[in-house]
């Protein structure tokens, strides 16, 4: 579903991604973890068609980016740590706006269903600025899945969520998995990185340094593995 080959992105003279290779199968849930500055956000912006790569191949559903961005955009939904919602609009209006932007049919019914689905029916007529962080994030998921995307992209979705809200988000994500959506998540939060997904990859200094099957590895073993790869970086930095 998602195919990334030798992806390179430079910011001026600064290489941020230096040859990333990643393959995500249809229906698979892959998590990318990595320290700050590893290039996670850049990778996510490229996959979500918001940024053009310097070189390399990115394909979603067989359509190459950035050439077929228009087509790809119909099949992806993005949840980020930014809510991407209008604080002055109500929950219902926010979703209605995106339904109209995507020109979905039965917009009203769809929106009502989506709001109920994320458990916000009681507050749907309140402006989003009165919502808690967790409620906003649930609404964000409703927004990102409103057009039934095949691919769901998650950019640090756990930022700013407390224990309960994280739990709720986990439940919602599990349901998205059951729906059969292909999910690519990036996070620096290892605990969440591991327990939901099928596969975890570690991104460090613009490259994928390690890929593991999440079901085959205990979280403590993974933590060790992760520490290994990031320590590696620090050692190298000292020598330069």
């Amino acid at each position: 579903m998602i195919e990334i080959k030798t992806l390179v992105k430079n910011y001026g003279l600064n290489p941020v991604l230096r040859g990333v290779n990643l393959h995500v199968q249809a229906g698979e849930f892959v998590t990318l973890v990595g320290p700050n500055g590893a290039g996670k956000s850049t990778l996510m912006r490229i996959v979500s068609t918001l940024l053009k790569p310097t070189s390399g191949l990115v394909e979603i559903g067989g359509w190459a980016l950035p050439r077929h961005s228009d087509r790809v955009r119909r099949y992806i939904g993005l949840v980020s740590h930014q809510t991407m919602l209008y604080a002055d609009l109500t929950a219902q209006e926010n979703l209605l706006f995106f339904a109209r932007l995507y020109q979905l049919d039965n917009a009203d019914a769809r929106v009502a269903r989506a709001i109920k689905y994320v458990g916000l029916a009681a507050r749907q007529r309140d402006p989003v600025r009165t919502f808690s962080r967790g409620m906003m994030q649930r609404l964000t998921i409703a927004r990102a899945t409103l057009h039934e995307p095949d691919v769901l992209l998650l950019d640090e979705p756990y930022t700013g969520l407390d224990q309960d809200a994280s739990q709720l988000l986990d439940d919602l994500l599990r349901r998205e998995v059951d729906y059969g959506r292909t999910i690519l998540m990036i996070t620096h939060d290892l605990a969440h990185g591991l327990n939901l997904c099928d596969r975890t990859a570690i991104l460090n200094r613009g490259k994928i340094v390690c890929e593991v099957n999440s079901h085959d590895i205990s979280s403590s073993a993974f933590l060790e593995l992760y520490a290994d790869h990031t320590r590696h970086q620090k050692k190298k930095k000292q020598t330069t």
Binding site: R18, R205, K207, K236, T239, T240
Partner: peptide, 8 residues
């Protein structure tokens, strides 16, 4: 790049 060890 040379100083960083070339392996990058």
């Amino acid at each position: 790049t040379r100083l960083q060890g070339g392996g990058t």
